[in-house]
Design a binder for these strands. Structure first.
Length: 431
RNA sequence: GGAGACGUGGCCGAGUGGUUGAAGGCGCUCCCCUGCUAAGGGAGUAGACGGUUUGUCCCGUCUCGAGGGUUCGAAUCCCUUCGUCUCCGCCA
């Protein structure tokens, strides 16, 4: 959500920033409605002050036993009432209208974010690792012998439909190990506080992080009105909703391992094979809440945390800055980390780290107060995957595959795999 | 799911229609006194919005979980909603 005062200071700049994201101009309309609202407020407040004094006089007259004066004051106040209610209705309409407009306008990109339309215009900022060489044609994760019998899409389709999978045996355990490994890594090395939050949330929570009102179709809703979170960014970031934090409690860093649910509306035909894109998946998330002056550095820190996990797992990756056209609704700047998938011969997104500045904080009313005192200021919020677990499983399988159908597993996972470091072609642990 | 109770400022806690933005206590900040610790005295201590100003000054309005309503006037009455707690039922 944007600050109307900032829009008023530089309406053209606001519209220019929107244009970079391909959004048509909005400042003039917003300021029109706001002007109308202000005029109504000023007038209503004037009348209310008058009514207040008149009502007080009526009360005093009644106590004094002056019936004539009481009735006169009462009637005067009564006459003001209709005019005030009229204006209050107008103010409500303006507020509602403004809110509707503002809630649907995306965040503005930072100046140094590259312009562009889609993922083709994203800018690579670094690579790590070397894609492995294979003396055979590397397979996709679901084709590899080691995973073949333990990754059942037909069974999942029978019980749940498309875009689900049933994992069994060693693959299921490997998947679980990845989640545990990442969560432990984030708490012990990256300074995040582990949290286990609700995955069903209310409307306001989804509005706070920006999923609602505009993207209702991308998430699932229960019959009693709850939403299934598409990412635990929603739950974790809203920890600070409606609070005023002391400055010395910033930054706050949370991590969680949760299920995530996405309807994948509009993704028909994309990534239909395998478990790259599912309605239900697991993700370890990182969320930071910082002072405004610290958020940009926090984004680099967070990106580094996510990259560190891939390094520990010895998975080659590249990091890109999303262009203005490819950024999410609430972000000012986003770093995507793309892991190398030999089976696809491509880098694919496995983490997305974004700084939202005060965009989400305004929506959820999350503020802090400087140690020296003063007015509360909005915090800055950041979120990033650390990492998407299902996709990480894919990367581990595809990068570790060998010609005999077995898979070498990253050494870092051994403590979470009972000491094993290999999947046999039969899908059993070994080594 | 059934029955009931409750939601007041950083915290505790008064207050059932008229100068109550809100007694009192605690905490915190500043000052005074006392002259190591302790104790005592005084002052201050919410947010949002609008106007004014652009001087971190002033004025006004709103906010007693939230949103509506009744009334000349509501923290106080009514409705809706969210949350908390207790008892019963059910349940991983």
């Amino acid at each position: 959500m944007h600050d109307i005062r900032k829009i008023a200071q530089d309406p053209d700049g606001f519209d220019r920033s929107l244009a970079r994201r391909g959004i048509e101009q909005a400042a003039a309309h917003i300021l029109d409605v706001d002007g109308e609202r202000r005029r109504a407020i000023t007038e209503a407040e004037r009348l209310r002050a008058e009514r207040k004094a008149t009502s007080r006089s009526a009360g005093q007259a009644q106590v004094a036993g002056d019936d004539a004066a009481f009735e006169r004051h009462r009637d005067d106040a009564s006459a003001l009432r209709a005019r005030i209610m009229d204006l209050e209705g107008k103010i409500r309409d303006c507020d509602r209208h403004l809110r509707e407009i503002l809630l649907e306008i995306p965040n503005l990109p930072h100046d140094d974010v590259p312009d562009g339309c889609d993922e083709n215009d994203n800018v690579e900022i670094r690579r790590w690792g070397v894609p492995p060489e294979f003396e055979f044609s590397p397979k996709e994760h679901f084709e590899i012998d080691a995973s073949h019998g333990s990754m059942d899409f037909e069974l999942a389709a029978r019980i749940a439909g498309s875009r689900f999978v049933v994992l069994t045996g060693a693959i299921a355990r490997l998947h679980r190990a990845l989640g545990q490994f990442m969560l432990d890594w984030n708490t012990t090395r990256n300074g995040y506080l582990e949290a286990n939050p609700p995955v069903l949330v209310r409307d306001e929570t989804m509005i706070g992080t920006g999923q609602l009102p505009k993207f209702a179709g991308e998430s699932y809703r229960t019959t009693d009105g709850h939403w299934l979170i598409p990412t635990s960014e929603v739950s974790l970031t809203n920890f600070v909703a409606d609070t005023i934090l002391p400055e010395d409690e910033l930054p706050q860093r949370y991590t969680a391992h949760t299920l995530c649910f996405r309807s994948e509306a509009g993704a028909a035909g994309r990534d239909t094979a395998g478990m790259l894109r599912q309605h239900q998946f697991e993700k370890v998330e990182m969320v930071s809440v910082t002072r405004p002056e610290d958020s940009r550095a926090e984004l680099d820190r967070m990106t580094g945390c996510a990259e560190g996990i891939l390094k520990a797992l010895e998975l080659p990756f590249r990091t890109v800055v999303l262009c203005t056209g490819d950024m999410g609704f609430g972000a000012c700047r986003t770093h995507d980390i793309e892991v190398w998938l030999p089976g696809q011969d491509a880098y694919r997104e496995i983490s997305s780290c974004s700084v939202c500045d005060e965009f989400q904080a305004r929506r959820m009313n999350a503020r802090f107060r400087r140690t020296g005192g003063g007015k509360p200021e909005y915090v800055h919020t950041l979120n990033g995957s650390g990492l998407a677990i299902g996709r990480c499983l894919i990367a581990v399988l595809e990068n570790g595959q060998r010609s005999d159908g077995s898979v070498l597993l990253p050494a870092a996972l051994r403590p979470w795999l009972g000491g094993f470091s290999k999947l046999t072609a039969e899908g059993e642990f070994g080594g």
